[in-house]
Computed example of a mutant assay.
Amino acid sequence: MKGFKAFLLRGNVVDLAVAVVIGAAFTKVINSIVDGIINPVVGAFGTQDLNAYTSCLKGTCQLDKATGKVDGILIQWGTVLGAVLSFVITAAVVYFLIVLPVNHLMKRYMSKKDEAVEVIKEAEVNEVVILSEIRDLLVAQRG
Rank of each mutant, 00 (worst) to 15 (best):
F26G: 09
Q62N: 13
K28F: 15
F26Q: 07
G59A: 07
G43F: 05
C56W: 02
C56P: 00
Q62P: 00
G72I: 00
G43P: 08
A52K: 08
V41C: 02
V18Y: 08
I22P: 03
Q76L: 05
D35K: 13
G43V: 09
V20N: 09
K58R: 07
V21W: 10
V42F: 12
K58S: 05
A25P: 01
V20K: 14
V41I: 14
V29N: 04
I22K: 08
F45L: 15
S55W: 05
G23T: 12
Y53I: 08
I75V: 15
N51L: 07
L57C: 00
I38W: 08
N51C: 02
V34D: 12
C61T: 01
D71T: 07
V42L: 15
C56Y: 02
V21R: 04
T67F: 05
V18C: 07
T54V: 13
K69Q: 12
D49H: 10
N51A: 11
T54C: 02
P40A: 07
Q48K: 10
V70F: 03
L74T: 02
I22W: 07
A52I: 03
A25R: 06
I38K: 03
A24R: 09
T27L: 14
K65E: 15
K69A: 13
G46E: 08
C56A: 05
F26W: 13
L63W: 04
V34Y: 08
A44E: 09
L50R: 00
C56Q: 07
I75H: 01
Q48N: 13
S55Y: 07
A24S: 11
I33H: 00
T60L: 01
T54Q: 10
I22V: 15
I33Q: 04
G36K: 03
F45C: 12
T47K: 11
W77M: 05
Q62W: 01
F45K: 07
F45G: 12
D49F: 10
L57T: 02
T27E: 12
C56K: 04
A19H: 15
A44L: 14
I33M: 05
A19L: 14
A66F: 11
V18A: 05
I30H: 07
K69Y: 06
G59S: 09
I38D: 05
T54L: 03
A66K: 13
G59E: 02
V29T: 10
V20Y: 15
T47I: 05
G43A: 10
A19M: 14
G23C: 12
D71Q: 08
T47L: 04
D64N: 15
A52T: 12
K65Q: 14
C61G: 02
I75K: 01
N51H: 03
I30R: 01
W77S: 04
I73Y: 06
L74F: 00
I75Q: 00
A24H: 12
V18K: 07
G72T: 01
I37H: 01
L57S: 03
D49S: 11
N51K: 12
V29R: 02
A52H: 08
G23L: 12
T27K: 13
N39K: 10
P40G: 04
K65L: 14
K28W: 15
Y53V: 07
K65W: 11
A24F: 14
S55A: 14
I22L: 15
G23A: 10
V41S: 00
S55Q: 05
K69H: 11
Y53C: 08
K28Y: 14
V21K: 09
I33A: 04
S32T: 13
I37Y: 05
T47Y: 09
L63Q: 01
G23P: 08
A25G: 09
G72D: 02
